[in-house]
Design a protein around this nucleic acid. Sequence first.
RNA 1: GGCCUCAUCGUCUAGCGGCUAGGACAGCGGGCUUUCAUCCCGUAAACCCGGGUUCGAUUCCCGGUGAGGUCACCA
Length: 451
Amino acid sequence: MSKANSVRTRFAPSPTGSMHIGNLRTALYAYALAKHNDGDFILRIEDTDKKREKTGGVEEIKSLLKRFNIQWDEYYIQSERVKSDIYKKAAEKLVAMGKAFYCQCVAKNAKEDGFSKDLRDPCRSKKLASGAVKLKVPDNEKISFTDFVSKKFVEWDTSVVGDATLLKTDGYPTYHLAVVVDDTDMNVTHVLRGHDWMSSTPIHLLVYKYLKFDVPEIGHLTDILDPEGGKLSKRKGSTSCEGLLDEGYLPDAILNFIMLTGWAPKDNSETFSLEGFVKVFNPDGFQVSNPIFDRKKLDWFNGYYIRNTDNHQLSRLIGDLYKDKLNKDILDKSIPIVKERIVKLSDYFDLAGFFYEKPSVDKNLFGDDANQHLGSALKIISSISEWKLESINTNLLNEVKSKGFKTGDFFMDLRIALTGKKFTPPINDSIEILGKEETLVRLRKALDISN
RNA sequence: GGCCUCAUCGUCUAGCGGCUAGGACAGCGGGCUUUCAUCCCGUAAACCCGGGUUCGAUUCCCGGUGAGGUCACCA
C-alpha cells in the first residue's frame, strides 16, 4: 500500500476547537513535504480526549481541508484504533519491561496545581497492578535528537522530564503514547508539529527507545505570534480559518499568506499556488524564529487574488457570501468595475451597495455648482437614446466642455447625487449599470436636495 | 522558577567571514486619472547589547538582555 522509501507525513489535529491558521499551516507544510517527494499525506484525528471533544469538530476539519484543497491519501480516527488494544498492549509491554508503572493517584490538573515540582510519581515504587500507566523516566540520562526544521541538535537531561501518563484510567492513550504507536504503525517518516510540542519530545524519544521503534525525522514549526504579543489565540482577532473565510478571504490567498509566514524560498518569490508551492517546497526554507501575523500582508494577497479571479467565479463567490440576496444581473455587471477596488469579498457591498439601494445623499457633500451640474446631467442623460457607456461618456463630456464646467467637479457632484459617496467605482460605468430610469430618478431627487 | 527554542528595516524575509546588507507588505512622495482603486516610478527604514575568534564579523563562540514555548490521566 505505502510506497517503499517514500516520504510519509501526517496532520494530526484533535477536534477540540476551531482550526486556526497555525493549524492550517502545519497541515500545509506536512502536505507539501509529502507531495514534493511524491509521498503520502495522512489525516489522523486525535480524539482521545473525549471530555474536550467538540461536536462536529471532525467534520469541520475535513471540510476545511477540502476547501483549501489539501487532500489526504489516508484517513484514521484514533478513537477507532483504541478498540484494537494497540495502545493498551504497548503500555502493558512497557510495564512488563519495567519502563512504565501503574498509578492510582487522583488526576492532577496543571492549572489548579501550578508548576509541578515532583517530576517522579510516588506510585512508581508501589508496584500496583492496575490504574493509569505512566512512563518511568530515568534520572540523569541524556536523550537527544536533531530537529529537521531547525537543523538543531537538542539534548535533555532526563531528570527534567516528568513521569508522563501514557494510558489513562478510561483506557484511552494520551498523546504521548498514541503519537508514537501510530506514527510507527503508519510508517510516518517525518513528524512535523507545532513548537509547543518541543518539550514533550524527550518523552516520545524514550517511548521509541523502550519499544525499540525507529525514530522518524522530527521537526518543530515556529508559532505564529499575535501582533499584540503572545501566541495567536482565538480571542485576539479572528484567525480561525472559518472566520477568515466568512470575512471574505479567499482560500488561495490565505494559503499563499501562511506559506510565507514561517517559510521562504531562496529567491524570495511571493506568489504561489498550492501546486507551485509543492513544487518548490523544501525544508531548508523553514524559518526558526516566530513570525507575527501580519493582516496587512494577508489583505494584499487577498486583493491580489481577487484581481486575478475571473469575473464569473468572483460573481459566484460574492453571491455566495451574501447568501444570494443580491440581484444576479447587477452583481455580474458590477464585478468588472469593483474587483480591483476590494480587498475582501465582504467589501463588496460597501462599495457597490448603491446599485441595490437608493443612497441617502448629504447635501453638504455637493460643490457650489451642484445645481447647474446636476441640471445639465439630467438634461443630457434624458436625451441619450442609445444606452451605452460610450454614448454616456461622450454626451456628458461634450456637455462639460460646452458649459465650461470643471470636469472633476461636475463628475463629483454627479457621483454624490447617484451614490451618496465620494469614493465609488467609475461613475459613467455605474450610470450604465444603474440604467436610465433609475439614474434620472436619483438625479431629480438630488436636485431637490441640493436646491 | 526549572528546562527548551529564538533574535536582519514597523512586518514577512534574502544573506550562510569581505555586499553601497537585497526583495515584498505596510508608510511616504510622484506619475496615470472625472473620485477611489489598479498600474508604474521613486523614497525613507534593519543586522538587540557586551565580550571574544579572525587581517576582517550581520554571519562563528561565550555571556547578557529581550521574546516565545513547556512543566495535566489536554492535545
